[in-house]
Design a protein around this nucleic acid. Structure first.
Lengths: 113, 113
DNA sequence: CACCAATGCATAAGAAAACTATGTATTATT
DNA sequence: AATAATACATAGTTTTCTTATGCATTGGTG
């Protein structure tokens, strides 16, 4: 099953930020692959969704980019800014809270720890 | 805290369907109030978001409407169609699965049941 | 009685966000 | 040699929500 894109919309940026928080430094393609791996293919980020989001986060000052060359191929590594670290915590907290609310609304039993 | 609207986007229709499943028959305004009550005000559906969604679900044949008059005031009651009941189950299952995946991705501990 | 808040529907215009499609280029595999 | 994978980017379209507005009824309060 691949999740309908509607579901991912609201959580995409938070996913990106969480991965950057854990891995310190990642490039776009790497993010798509890691999300795919971690979700067993259930979430497949398209480049048309990912790159604009990365650019938006960069414009907001939440992440910073460094360009590197691997041979002749360019890579843009992203990492959290100081402010980004704060914002990331806030976002994750909000999302966790939201999921708890949804769980109650939808009457879904939590999985065991 | 009121959740950022991004979060609600992907789940709005599923919330509507779940409430109709549990309550058999509801009208728009009633849905906004019930969501507000059940979430302690954390999710506030605006009419501009709700009514277009209801119309879309009706156009898809997932819900059906009946108009009633309470005095001179009109009310449109919605309920799940036969197909809507099937779709509702699917959607809830998908959302539950998605939330489980997000929980794993974001490394969030489940609340105790 | 006058006024305002709440109830109840609806839609138009605009904005936000992702999707599709496309483009460019390098590197690895077959 | 051809194809798949890696790696970036963006233009145009669509979807969806938000904001704003409109209309109308009903209930409560000063």
């Amino acid at each position: 099953m691949i999740y309908s894109s509607e579901l991912i919309k609201g959580t995409l940026k938070t996913i990106i930020l969480k991965l950057l928080k854990e891995n310190k430094r990642m490039y776009g393609y790497e993010i798509t692959q890691m999300v795919k791996d971690m979700t067993k293919g259930k979430i497949q980020l398209t480049e048309g969704a990912l790159y604009p989001s990365l650019h938006a986060l960069e414009a907001e000052g939440i992440i910073v980019a460094e360009t590197e060359y691997i041979g002749k191929r360019v890579r843009k590594y992203y990492s959290l800014s100081t402010e980004g670290k704060v914002r990331t915590k806030e976002r994750i907290t909000e999302l966790a809270d939201f999921m708890e609310t949804m769980r109650f609304l939808l009457d879904i039993q939590p999985a065991k720890g």
